[in-house]
Design a protein around this nucleic acid. Structure first.
Ligand SMILES: [Mn+2]
Ligand SMILES: [Mn+2]
Ligand SMILES: [Mn+2]
Ligand SMILES: [Mn+2]
Lengths: 223, 223
DNA sequence: AATATTTATTAGGCGAACCTAACTTATTAT
DNA sequence: ATAATAAGTTAGGTTCGCCTAATAAATATT
């Protein structure tokens, strides 16, 4: 009863999960998934056939892709592994936010139940990863929030930057001009009623940013 | 200049290193390597062709296999990674002696220089793994401890276990069932002429083991 | 030296995962 | 409703790593 999947099958399942379930779309198309995985639509088509025959994905010819509950269960465990590894790399091996993902992408495929169980204990059963994303528990439950965008932070509260939504050069230039980097601590001083802009305290400096800007910066609340 | 090898190429190189250099044979044959890797001689032949073209193995048609110094360098780093991971699993994740190998066999293929550098620091730059085998340093140096195997110990002499051959799970399970671990003291009571088996005194308990078993346990003589 | 045995290589094929190019079906715009 | 575009599928080909069966070379035995 213990299905063993290849690294590739796992990556497809996880990607499909993230663009359907995690983003609340429920379904996705071949091209979307192909784009996400940097692979041709034809390749996705072939893999989907296989996953369908393994009862992990459900869809009909020319129809949208959906995951079966078994498929979701497997995908969630991959997400769990990925985020536990990111946490380990970040907390114990001095990796920075932007370095953890690539390595976790490999580590998530290591086959060993004991490994992930013990890693979780070692890390103290963490509930979110270095990007502020929630870590599912052994049974697959996980809170859908934890990661917020800067615009959602209330007046007077502090947070640290964990990632950015938009990676365009224009946006990133603006980000760095403000002295914002990953791990930067930001205190939200005011929400301005007129245009919903925010006054931020970054280090000693105050900056005013638009709502649109704030929505593109992901943060983790300080507790 | 930075060669990227597949998991399989890596496994072939490491195995070849271990049956040639680590056992002082210097060379090996196709069949030997095939046996070691649980693969057909034909498969070894194909892979050797590729490794030869990459200048990692040197040999002529129908000749014995030898590694180039570049091949050895890569293999040594794989051995290093393998043993560092074993150490991590053993010391931090509550893995037992016989469980570490299988998982390290996967972890050794993770591609990240920073990962192994940081893992080494985290572990405090260890010089031997849970099986007592030496861990090469970043530059590839490592002490080739002269280990004796248990079968070479004379009647009436005592010794302590320093390592075991990285062999099958079955063997390692048998080892731990007898209460043997690193540093375990063993007194060799008798050599039995009939089948070359040995009677050992381990703690208060006497156990009889086969020659084959004794040859797979490495020890250091008591002085 | 001739023969038997072991060891290494080649030939031919298979499955996984990828690709491009051509095609079919579905959706959107006119 | 028709035509244009987008999305999904199929066909045919590549590379990688594996296999078995047949063959060739090296080594050991008589
Ligand atoms: Mn992955
Ligand atoms: Mn993450
Ligand atoms: Mn391996
Ligand atoms: Mn070991």
């Amino acid at each position: 009863m213990d299905i063993v999947l290849s690294k590739n099958e796992e990556d497809y399942l996880k990607a499909l999960f993230q663009i359907t379930v995690e983003s609340n779309m429920g379904v996705a198309g071949t091209n979307q998934l192909a784009l996400n995985l940097c692979v041709s639509p034809a390749s996705v088509n072939g893999m989907i056939k296989k996953l369908r025959s393994k009862k992990l994905v459900k869809s009909e010819r020319y129809g949208k892709l959906e995951m079966t509950s078994q498929g979701k269960t497997i995908a969630i465990q991959l997400v769990r592994k990925h985020r536990l590894w990111e946490t380990f790399l970040y907390q114990y091996l001095d990796f920075s936010w932007d370095e953890v993902h690539e390595v976790a992408e490999q580590l998530e495929h290591i086959k060993s139940d004991k490994l992930i169980k013990q890693l979780n204990s070692f890390l103290g059963n963490p509930d979110s990863d270095p990007h502020g994303d929630p870590i599912p528990d052994e049974t697959g439950n996980f809170s859908k929030k934890s990661k917020k965008n800067l615009a959602q932070i209330e007046e007077g509260k502090s947070c640290t930057v964990v990632s950015v939504k938009d990676a365009s050069v224009a946006f990133l230039q603006m980000v760095s001009k403000l002295g914002i980097g990953l791990q930067t601590e930001i205190m939200v001083k005011n929400h301005h009623e007129f245009d919903a802009s925010r006054t931020l305290l970054i280090g000693e400096q105050e900056h005013q940013v638009s709502l649109k800007f704030a929505e593109n910066v992901f943060v983790k609340e300080r507790v």
